[in-house]
């Protein structure tokens, strides 16, 4: 896959589906164009990213940061549910779930 590839509307639609954003066609088209330009610019990283260089995912060289297995107070259910768009029986109420669990 070359970095210069042109993204089509359906490429962007697939990405929008993965990201769960319901975009309109004009939006997809505009984004396809913008992403082409941005991708061309950011693909410059490939110029210097040679196989001998180790990737850095984190700026700090920390290891093994853990917490002891100790129970700390939870939120009250009222606080947990305080921001919920809908709730019922002390649970978050959500619209019907169509998909399958992974």
């Amino acid at each position: 896959m070359s970095a210069m590839s042109n993204l089509s509307r359906s490429d962007v639609a697939h990405l929008a589906h993965l990201a769960r954003i319901d975009m309109t066609d004009p939006e997809l088209d505009a984004l396809a164009n913008e992403l082409d330009v941005i991708l061309e610019a950011v693909a410059r990283v490939q110029e210097v990213a040679t196989p001998d260089i180790a990737p850095t995912s984190h700026p700090l060289p920390l290891r093994n940061v853990t917490r002891p297995d100790v129970v700390t107070p939870s939120l009250t259910p009222a606080a947990a549910l305080s921001g919920a768009p809908a709730s019922e029986d002390q649970r978050f109420r959500v619209p019907q779930i169509l998909g399958e669990e992974a």
């Binding site: 950011v42 990283v45 490939q46 210097v48 990213a49 040679t50 260089i53 180790a54 990737p55 850095t56 995912s57």
Partner: peptide
């Protein structure tokens, strides 16, 4: 992956 190498 390449971006992480640039970070290095």
């Amino acid at each position: 992956g390449s971006a992480q190498k640039v970070r290095t």
